[in-house]
Structures are given as C-alpha cells and as structure tokens.
Design a protein around this nucleic acid. Structure first.
Lengths: 137, 137
DNA sequence: ATTCTTGCAAACGGTTTGCACATAC
DNA sequence: GTATGTGCAAACCGTTTGCAAGAAT
C-alpha cells in the first residue's frame, strides 16, 4: 500500500511548487479511501459532500497535477483516440508519448496470477509500453 | 502476419451475418496496408481517396463491426473514461467489460524485448486484463 | 503583492445516434 | 422484397480552456 498521509502529500506538493489547498487534500483523500479506481466525476461527487462548492473542472485540473508529480496513477485511455490494427496475432504495443506513434512489440509469455477466487473470466490481455520513440526522445 | 485477403474477409463477414460492401472491403484494405495503427479519421482520409462519398460515421460503424467479429484489434482507450488510483506500487489491472469495475492485480516480471535498435525509451508499462468479473460473467 | 488556484461556463473533439435513401442478398 | 448498410447531420459527453474572483505564500 503505497499511499501517502496528509503531511507527505503536502510535502510532495510543495516540492513540486504546487500550493496546498483544502480541495487538493480532499481530492487526494477521496482517492485514498477507495480501491475502486474512481473517475473524475466520481471523485467530484465524493469531494462535494465536504466541499459543496467544488467544481468538476477543479477536480480535473488537480488530478492532472497529481498525476504529473507522481501522486497517483492513471488507468484508462492510453491513447487520445482509438487506434486500430489489422494484425491479429498476439503482440504488445509501444506508444510514443510525444508523436503518438504505435509500434508492435514481440509478445512474451506473461504468467499473471489472478487473485484467489476472484472469479474473473479473462478474455483479452493488453500490454502497453509508453515512452519516447527514437525520433522524439 | 495474420492479415486476411479479400476472399477471407468476405467469408468472415458472411459467417457473422454481415453484408459485403465495397466500403467494408476498402476499409479493411486501408488497415491492412499500414502498420501505423491508424485512427478512424486516418482510415477515413485514406479510404476517401477511392470512395470520395464515404462518411466518417460509416468508418466508425464498420470498424466496430470488424472489431466485434475479430477482424481487427483495437489499441487505445481500454476504459470509456479516465480512472485514477492512489496506489503507486507496481501492479496490473483487471477491467470488467460489463460493469467497468477495475481491480488491481499482483504484478509479475515481464521481460519484454524491445525491437533491435528501436531506440525506444520506455517510461511506463501497463498491463490490462479485460473480461468479466464474478458478478457479471 | 504576487502567483497560483478555484469555480463557472463555454468550447472542444472524438464518437455515437437517428433517419431517409441506397444497396446486398 | 426485406433486411442491412450508407451518408449526412445533429447530439452526446468526457475533458479542456479562458477568465475573473479568491486563496496561498
């Protein structure tokens, strides 16, 4: 469990030249109190219980800052828009964060253990590497 | 290279009760003639060269059908909306295709070989399993 | 005092949807 | 002839942006 307490969050924010506000602390706390990987909207609904005046825009801006300084992880859209591939053989993808080029990567065996008794029925597996391609680094 | 020729595409479409049209064949061909993982917009621009009347909406609908019947792969948004996680330790994600629940999965060592001399600079790696959770299967 | 942040509302952009006409079967 | 697909345009919706007022340092 690598989650920070209030003081650590404040320190991290200040280290990166970001101000500490009640909204930011509340948003981080909302994220910490769940394992459900909430969306911006869900975080907004949660935080609004304590800060009725907060706006969804603030949640988006704050979350983006948190992501930039490494306070949170983002799950989800790894590409801005949907991209398609006629290659149906199993393979992974490398995505350039700058030019958004996508290249296929030779697949490797991944032996992922699902949680005991999770009951998950896995249909697809997707491995994405993100970074910079040779032109953009 | 698991890409189909025209006859195989026609067969696959008919097997799934889909009609064969010039637009569909052209869209599949556009996808086959590139390794650049084009977006719907890029496919549209490409196909328009031969079918100036085609619409972007048709491209979207066609691509979705192709995806449903397993003719193409979709790279990109694995979640409809961005989702966030305060857990910063390395881990993978399981995403339910129906209820969109996300659960963390214990990470495994993946020893992915990058293409020789690709020059990729990898910053992040994301492993996502998609399927149905115990409630939705 | 200055810079950063908030809240609000409008704009943005990729994708979806509805519908009349055309096409495949 | 009937079901399916196409083209067009409008709607949708998550996210971003601009800006004036407010808060942090």
């Amino acid at each position: 469990m690598e989650r920070k307490n209030e003081k650590e969050v404040m320190a991290t924010l200040r280290e990166h030249g970001l101000q500490v506000t009640y909204q930011r602390l509340a948003i981080y706390q909302a994220l910490c109190n769940t394992t459900e990987h909430p969306s911006a909207e869900v975080i907004y609904q949660q935080v609004k219980k304590r800060f009725p005046m907060i706006s969804l825009g603030t949640v988006y801006k704050t979350i983006e800052r948190f992501y930039e300084v490494g306070l949170i992880q983002k799950v989800g859209p790894v590409t801005e828009v949907a991209r398609y591939d006629a290659e149906m053989g199993p393979h992974h993808h490398f995505i350039c964060l700058k030019c958004h080029a996508i290249e296929n990567i030779e697949p490797v065996e991944t032996d992922i253990r699902l949680p005991e008794g999770s009951g998950f029925h896995v249909l697809r597996q997707q491995v994405v590497l993100q970074g910079y391609c040779s032109h953009c680094r």
